Amino acid sequence: MLDDTDRRILRQMQAEPGAPAADLADRAGVTASTLARRLDRLRADGILRGVRGVIHWPALGYAVEVSLRITLDKTQPRAFDAFIEAARRVPEVLEIQTFLGQVDVRLSVIARDMAHYQQLYRDHILTLPHMTDIEALMHVARVKADESLPI
């Protein structure tokens, strides 16, 4: 289990993941050696899975985001596996989620513009295997996009 020191360290890492170790240790109220030891343990325990760069994709020219809700042919034994394997190969698919219920899969897709999206849809999305239904939801605004946990 996490103790208060671990929680302080994780809170500080979430607040500023690129901070130098000395600053992080100071803000968490621990020594640099304690910080290093705790981070090693948190990584070994699979709690801290890494630090990553998050790219603001609209700054790179991607202006369209679409959420696709897809129903698969569940009479096919490997429908989920084959679909997910193929969807992973589409670079513009940022996220794949699976569900129980009427909708089986949700894809988050980005494109430079509507013409690019139309080309992706025709050439890549519609060729994905085992789809029986697809619904496109055009993204309008991201109201909350916070990956920080209440630690």
Score class of each variant (00 low, 15 high):
L2M: 07
T5Y: 00
T5Q: 03
D6A: 02
L10A: 07
R11Y: 00
R11S: 12
Q12W: 00
Q12C: 00
E16D: 13
G18I: 03
G18W: 04
A19H: 08
A19D: 11
P20I: 09
P20V: 12
A21H: 01
A22D: 12
L24P: 02
R27H: 08
R27N: 07
A28C: 00
V30A: 07
A32N: 09
S33R: 09
T34E: 12
L35A: 03
R37Q: 12
R38Y: 07
R38L: 04
D40C: 02
D40N: 13
R41F: 02
R43H: 09
G46H: 04
I47A: 05
L48P: 01
R49T: 13
R49S: 04
V51S: 13
V54E: 11
I55P: 01
W57Q: 15
P58T: 06
A59E: 12
L60N: 08
L60E: 10
G61S: 11
G61Y: 06
A63R: 15
A63Q: 14
V64A: 04
V64W: 04
V66Y: 01
R69I: 02
R69G: 10
T71A: 12
L72C: 10
L72S: 11
Q76V: 15
Q76Y: 13
R78H: 15
A79K: 10
F80Q: 05
A82S: 15
F83V: 02
F83W: 03
I84P: 00
A86N: 01
R88C: 08
R89F: 01
R89M: 08
E95W: 00
E95A: 05
Q97L: 14
L100S: 14
G101D: 12
Q102T: 10
V103R: 11
V105A: 09
S108P: 00
V109K: 04
I110P: 02
D113F: 03
M114T: 11
H116P: 04
Q119E: 15
L120S: 07
D123G: 02
D123P: 01
L126Q: 14
L128P: 02
P129T: 05
P129W: 06
M131G: 04
T132I: 15
T132G: 06
D133Q: 14
D133Y: 06
I134E: 09
E135W: 08
A136Q: 09
M138V: 10
H139G: 08
V140P: 04
V143S: 05
V143Q: 07
K144Q: 05
S148P: 01
L149Y: 06
I151R: 02
I151V: 14
I151S: 02
